[in-house]
Design a protein around this nucleic acid. Structure first.
Lengths: 228, 228
DNA sequence: GCTAATATAATAGTATTACTATCGTTATTC
DNA sequence: GAATAACGATAGTAATACTATTATATTAGC
């Protein structure tokens, strides 16, 4: 990413934190290291106490930024989807041909994540792994409807909406653009998971990637031809 | 289901329990009521202590059947997928036309679940809800590879394999049968979830169901026509 | 119907988690 | 240089996720 973007910020619902972690050194450290620690030990075993030890700070200080680890996960997820949305909009912006535009969007949304130096304290590659393994846990909770009302999932919802519109732009008569869009986003994470842990349940591997599978699936579903 | 099936049992990996819950009244009660309690309070808030109170039995007695609630969830999931597999095999058994066979399989796998009186102590409708909300949590854990080696997911894997074969039977040249099969199973649960909690992210509702969406998607992907 | 074996209930206890509260110390700002 | 905000240290609580032990039922075999 360009040096021009150095001061870019991803907008996140301010109910997800008590004190904005972007506003201090400690806050950034909490975000940065929580990503690494969650990836290392898994979300279930992750605690603020352990994170405190790791960043040589106090448990109670972390609680001043985030109410609990669930909110932290929602924060990280919002950041991730905001970042993906930004890259998708940026990459598809100049494309006028709807088919090309959709193809580019699918690529961005299903690609393996590479490092992005525009955001120095966040390791996007590791964050992608967390999203693959933990994102579902942020919404598969009893409180989901209330949290949805609070706007904790707006970024993700906007992204599905955008993709859905691109599908409709290509084929206005296709009856399930939203379901296809949500299936792509969720399914892409799932295929990455399977590739790592259940290779017998997927055709994705070192030579075939989720982008190829989903591009093929969506293009066939919309009766488009890749090569014209 | 038929009265003939009254004594049917779903085969489950015996490492998932300490004492077979099918072998006693208390064991069956544990399974029966755990389904209802998990659905009521969600998996995170569910504890063996609460279950003990509910079934007027002791926490420690439940621990004699299941090591912990994670194993219980794996047990319930295996039961569910075994039950689905059984119904799928049963329903598609006599069909020789591969296209018809696939269509029937998709229907069974994506349908809304109705009560099945063959298994008196298990409420399949509620169990389906649990699978929608909690199944991911059974495999999105750090120990997944080890648990996979122990065979905790064989039933689900066999089901994906069967569906994949049916896809290949219809189109031997389709390059992603496994990914399409796993996307269908996972995606179907996801669409049900969205329908309930994020209606703006799906086209499934009271008049359109996941079966229609997925049948359409898979048939288009495989270049099949529904009506011939 | 009695005995032995097994299953279950009751109770107690431990380490860890997920916090909350308080207070002293260190930075920052005005 | 004083005021204010941020942070660290410590303590404490209720709940969780168990394990262990012992007492009491239940059942099975004879």
């Amino acid at each position: 990413m360009d040096i021009l973007m150095q001061s870019l910020r991803i907008g996140i619902n301010d109910k997800l934190y008590i004190k904005d972690p972007e506003s201090s050194k400690l806050g950034k450290k909490i975000v940065e290291e929580s990503i690494l620690l969650i990836e290392e030990v898994g979300f279930e075993s992750f605690t603020f106490k352990k994170l405190g030890v790791r960043i040589k700070s106090n448990e109670s200080s972390i609680y001043r930024y985030f109410e609990n680890k669930h909110k932290l996960l929602l924060y990280l997820s919002s950041w991730y989807w905001g970042w993906v949305e930004y890259r998708m909009v940026f990459a598809t912006n100049g494309i006028s041909n709807p088919k090309e535009k959709l193809q580019k969007a699918i690529a961005i949304l299903t690609q393996k994540v590479e490092e992005d130096n525009a955001f120095t304290h966040i390791n996007e590659v590791v964050l992608h792994k967390i999203i693959i393994n933990e994102y579902s846990k942020s919404y598969l909770v009893k409180e989901v409807s209330q949290e949805n009302k609070e706007g904790y999932f707006v970024v993700f919802k906007r992204l599905v909406g955008r993709l859905s519109q691109m599908i409709t732009a290509v084929d206005a008569d296709y009856p399930y653009p939203l379901s296809l869009a949500s299936t792509l986003l969720e399914g892409s994470l799932h295929q990455y998971f399977l590739q790592e842990h259940f290779p017998t349940l997927t055709n994705c591997n070192t030579s075939v990637n989720p982008t190829e599978f989903f591009t093929d699936m969506i293009f066939r579903t919309l009766n488009l031809n890749l090569n014209d």
